[in-house]
Simulated scan of single mutants.
Amino acid sequence: MRAFVFPGQGSQKVGMGVELAAASPAAREVFEEVDDALGQKLSAIMAEGPDDQLTLTENAQPAIMAHAIAVLRVLEKEGGIVLTGAADCVAGHSLGEYTALCAAGAFSLADTARLLKLRGQAMQAAVPVGVGAMCALIGADLEKAQTLADAAAEGQVCQVANDNDPTQVVLSGHREAIERAIGMVKDHGIKRGVLLPVSAPFHCDLMQPAADAMAEALEKTPPRAFRLPLYANVTAAAMEDPAQEQRLLVEQVCGRVRWRESVLAMRAAGVEHFVELGGKVLGPMIGRIDSETKVTSVISMDDIEALAKEIG
């Protein structure tokens, strides 16, 4: 069995998609459609920067999605690969869950771009700049991270945001609490804590205003039936009901990204090959979760041709 997986924030970089757009009309169509849907030249920011514009949450989220869907469209249109024939399920990390839903037909490309633009804006607006922060705990499992978060909170928000793999957990919350957590890592048997260069504290209770905004947006643009099961971030379980997934997407804004458990659940269901489209972020995590599994990262035309040859 094979899973197609889609990366989250942090996988953006200036120049993303340039080679693909030059080589493939299918990729260019994706970037043009996203530009039209958003009423901005996002593709130009992706190609040329500046970097601070691309890393803005409201630009990074639709950009990462557009890049991954461009890779998928090229694979489908020029590699002759049909998603439902090539993959048994899909999943995505945080915003990547929207990309996965787009890939599986639950949202149109234009709607996905608009939802992610709004999601980025709402997340940024939920907490004043400087009030929140996030940190990665290196050498921490979920239990150690949870104990540290509880100890560092001191009445403020300090929560596990991402359970990425057995060696990396991310905390999110009030800046003071996150800084306390970083200062306490050694006491909790954790190798180190690294403050992340993010503009807002994602996946914690401080994001409730953004969750409310997404609830409203998803009422107007609910997911349709999807062609493949999706492993949802907040449940780490296969999901096929659009109405339930709509609720989970709202929960996901404040909820923990249960990526490690999602990968283990896919493995338990029989997945032996994970294909990451549009990034090289999830692959190393999956390798640390289960070293026996096969992981392929697909970004370039060469990557696409190699995958098409392998699974065609």
Results as ranks from 00 to 15, higher is better:
Arg2Met: 05
Ala3Ile: 08
Gln9Glu: 08
Gly10Pro: 06
Ser11Asp: 08
Gly17Tyr: 01
Leu20Gln: 09
Ser24Ile: 07
Phe31Gln: 03
Glu33Lys: 15
Asp35Pro: 03
Gly39His: 07
Ala44Ser: 14
Ile45Cys: 04
Met46Val: 04
Asp51Gln: 12
Gln53Cys: 11
Leu54Thr: 07
Thr57Tyr: 13
Ile64Arg: 00
Ile64Ala: 05
Met65Phe: 08
Ala66Pro: 02
Ala68Thr: 10
Ala70Thr: 09
Ala70Ser: 14
Val71Lys: 13
Lys77Thr: 03
Gly80Arg: 13
Ile81Cys: 09
Ile81Gln: 10
Val82Glu: 14
Val82Phe: 08
Cys89Ile: 12
Ala91Ser: 10
Gly96Ala: 08
Thr99Ser: 12
Cys102Lys: 10
Ala106His: 01
Ala106Gly: 08
Phe107Asp: 01
Phe107Trp: 03
Ala110Cys: 03
Ala113Val: 07
Lys117Asp: 11
Leu118Asn: 13
Leu118Thr: 15
Arg119Pro: 01
Ala136Gln: 02
Ala136Cys: 14
Gly139Glu: 11
Gly139His: 07
Thr147Val: 12
Thr147Gly: 06
Thr147Ala: 15
Thr147Cys: 06
Ala149Pro: 00
Ala153Glu: 09
Cys158Ile: 11
Gln159Asn: 11
Ala161Ile: 04
Asn162Pro: 08
Asn162Trp: 08
Pro166Cys: 02
His174Ala: 05
Arg175Pro: 15
Ala177Glu: 01
Asp187Lys: 01
Asp187Pro: 00
Arg192Asn: 10
Arg192Met: 14
Val198Lys: 06
Ser199Ile: 02
Phe202Leu: 11
His203Met: 13
Cys204Met: 07
Thr221Ser: 03
Thr221Arg: 02
Pro223Tyr: 09
Ala232Met: 06
Asn233Val: 14
Ala236Leu: 06
Ala243Pro: 06
Ala243Arg: 12
Leu249Arg: 15
Leu249Pro: 00
Val253Ala: 02
Gly255His: 02
Leu264Trp: 10
Val271Gln: 11
Glu272Tyr: 07
His273Pro: 13
Phe274Val: 01
Gly279Tyr: 01
Leu282Arg: 05
Pro284Tyr: 00
Ile286Tyr: 01
Ile286Cys: 03
Asp290Glu: 09
Val298Cys: 09
Val298Glu: 00
Val298Ile: 07
Ile299Asn: 13
Ile299Arg: 12
Asp302Cys: 13
Asp303Ala: 15
Glu310Asn: 14
